[in-house]
Design a binder for these strands. Structure first.
Length: 626
RNA sequence: GCCAGCGUAGCUCAGCUGGUAGAGCUGCUGAUUUGUAAUCAGUCGGUCGGGGGUUCGAGUCCCUCCGCUGGCUCCA
């Protein structure tokens, strides 16, 4: 929208004729002539693009007007639609809506006296401009970058609905000795303290902590990840060791999903704000997008791979023979412009990586089968990362009641009691949502894996398949992120190890994820050659501490890096042709290289391997933090 | 986004009521060649988060912006 603000000694107008876009209601609202003395006259023209966020434009314009009125000390306003300010006008409908919106906002300021001119009429006007420096001002207002305002002004229906939504909490545990099914308040949590934490966290929402989550210190001290003040908040830099772990985790998750049948694709990270289908979807969750402007056109950055995959699925030729059909993407990246106060280390970021799987199922039976299979996959994934989790399942009540055996089956697959939330009405796109929650050192819950049954988006995005009678049908759609955000997986791993340290145990990474898997430490420089010989014989990430410091310090450094196996090489080892292995459990063992490799092998089973992204000699390795 | 706290060397931190910045670790140099969590000595390193203000004088007081942490909120 363009506005021209003029501080006038007097202003008058009168309607002289109708234009093609005249509406008689405008004359009722504004009258056909008017005259005022000292006043701030605001000429305005709504432009293309304003319709993407009327609330944002209206609130910015209102703010501009009020701020100038205050500066020049006037209480008289004239709002005057004036199309000639722009060569790229919006539709008349949008213009009138915007005009009304701005007037509503201005009228809520009771001290102001407001006169308006009608939209869509030829008018004659007379103005006398005061001519002081603030008396003439032109501004162009765009919706971009300010979209968060709409969240305050016009909360989406879905968000509003959720706030007032009543839900019921139930615990259901698998068949067996301790089987239970009933209100969560009546469950004895003694054996599942973390489930109780999850329940309290979900129900009350209140948490008490004055401490920063311990993973933040660890991610920096271990030279994995760090803040990047040169970027926006919640955007991180990844050092070689952290980047390696991230890449390993991604590779692992992707291989699980593609083995499960996910067809890996890649979709754009930005989408046209005005694309009609996407726009409809965005209106359900209007805030929290990064918006960028390119040649006057606005794009938002994706918050998941959903759109990209919906648009592909819309264009695909799918028959019932193809179902279930699964598209998969590891999003590098997903963007969510969370409120700044919500950001927390690797737990909650603005830019993150996550696996996103969308499955089309021909009917609810197939959707449920897939749901179960993907639950299994998520369990396998969590086990691979060595993460413990608590299960939460959210249902629309009707759905849960009509599918009781399905609910039981999920709980049984998870093999532990689950917290179930029942909603009386469906306010989001899903009828069922499974979550694996990690409970951290400060008793806070973070959702990792999730599987959802979507009953809304196939229609919205016109995704169809041809059934066995040759007719078009809408499939059911499953959303699954079998690990949740990769960044958050790393958060959970670090937090779980911080808890172990608190209990006096040694922290460690799963062997396959350890940046350095083995380290050779020579007793003295003399054994350098002997060390180098071992390097080539070990097919894992092995390095060699050749720095000119004491052996005690090298041991300490390796322990602080959580290196799983430390190999000390001295005269004895050279003479006997064996290794002295100090493992993470504290044990020191004399063993042959082949024995060590046999011990390691099962720890790598089914897990990816990537090379060490750092110089093998520690004397050649720069320090990133500390 | 709101409220509160914090921001001093690469890292962890000290610096009282305003008087012109200090330690340990790391790094570097040298000595030492070491047997399982810190060998000894020397030495480099700071527009005290950015900008503005008050003052003869600001790391210290005030304003503002940025960042981090906690709480609220939020988590499609």
């Amino acid at each position: 929208m363009r506005i021209l603000l003029i501080h006038a000694d007097r202003f008058s107008f009168r309607v002289t004729g109708e234009t093609s876009v005249a509406l008689s209601s405008e004359l009722d609202k504004a009258g056909s002539e008017g005259e005022v003395g000292e006043s701030l006259v605001v000429f305005m023209a709504a432009e293309k693009g304003d319709e993407t966020n009327i609330g944002s434009v209206a609130s910015q314009v209102t703010e501009e007007i009020l701020s100038l009125a205050l500066q020049i000390g006037t209480e008289n306003l004239v709002i005057y639609p004036y199309a000639h300010l722009s060569s790229s006008l919006s539709s008349p409908r949008v213009a009138v809506k915007l005009l009304d919106e701005i007037l509503t906002r201005l009228r809520s300021q009771n001290h102001l006296k407001i006169m308006r001119a009608p939209f869509g009429y030829y008018k004659a006007f007379e103005i006398s401009c005061k001519g002081h420096p603030l008396s003439e001002l032109a501004k162009t207002i765009t919706p971009s970058g300010r979209t968060e305002r709409i969240a305050d002004d016009e909360e989406s229906q879905a968000i509003k609905a959720e706030k007032t939504l009543e839900s019921q909490w139930i615990i259901q545990s698998p068949e067996g000795e301790f089987a239970y099914s009933g209100p969560a308040d009546g469950f004895s949590f003694a054996s599942r303290p973390n489930l109780e934490r999850l329940f309290r966290y979900e129900k009350s929402g209140s948490r008490i902590s004055d401490k920063a989550p311990p993973h933040i210190e660890l991610m920096r001290r271990m030279e994995l990840v760090d803040y990047e003040p040169g970027s926006d908040q919640g955007n991180f830099r990844w050092y070689p060791k952290g980047q390696l772990m991230k890449r390993l985790a991604e590779t692992y998750v992707s291989s699980l999903v593609t083995q499960h049948g996910g067809m890996q694709v890649e979709t754009p990270i930005m989408y046209d704000y005005q694309h009609p289908k996407l726009n409809l979807y965005l209106q359900r969750f209007p805030a929290r997008q990064y918006v960028l402007l390119s040649d006057e056109k606005e794009y938002f950055l994706r918050f998941a791979a959903c759109f990209g995959q919906y648009l592909i699925q819309h264009d695909m030729q799918i028959s019932h023979h193809h179902l279930p059909s699964k598209l998969y993407e590891l999003t590098h990246y997903s963007f969510r412009r969370e409120q700044s106060g919500e950001l927390a280390g690797l737990k909650r970021l603005r830019t993150f990586t996550m696996p996103d799987l969308h499955t089309l199922a021909k009917d609810m039976e197939q959707a449920k089968e897939e749901f179960i299979a993907q639950t299994d996959l998520a369990i396998q994934c969590m086990e691979g990362f060595g993460l413990d989790f608590e299960v939460a399942i959210r249902f629309v009540r009707d759905f849960a009641e009509q599918n009781q055996s399905f609910v039981e089956e999920i709980v049984s697959r998870c093999g532990r009691p689950a917290l179930i939330e029942l909603w009386e009405e469906r306010s989001f796109y899903f009828v069922a949502k499974l979550e694996f929650n990690f409970i951290d050192a400060l008793d806070k819950a973070a959702c990792l894996s999730t599987v959802q049954i979507d009953v809304e988006n196939p229609q919205r995005f016109d995704i169809t398949y041809i059934d066995d009678k040759g007719e078009k049908q809408y499939p059911f759609l499953l959303h699954a992120s079998i690990s949740g955000s990769i960044d958050r997986v790393l958060y959970a791993i670090l937090e779980s190890q911080a808890m172990r340290m608190k209990q006096g145990q040694k922290a460690s990474f799963p062997f396959w994820l350890a940046p350095v898997q083995l380290r050779i430490i020579p007793v003295s420089e003399k054994f350098g050659e002997a060390c180098k010989k071992i390097l080539d014989k070990v097919p894992y990430r092995i390095d060699y501490d050749d720095r000119d410091i004491s052996m005690g310090r090298k041991i300490r450094a390796a322990e602080r890096e959580w290196v799983p196996y430390i190999l000390v090489i001295g005269a004895k080892e050279v003479a006997e042709g064996c290794l002295n292995v100090r493992s993470r459990d504290g044990a020191q063992k004399k063993m042959a290289l082949s024995e060590l490799l046999t011990e390691i092998e099962p720890q790598m089973e089914g897990k990816p391997f990537l090379d060490l992204p750092l110089p093998q000699r520690l004397s050649r390795r720069p320090i990133f933090v500390g």
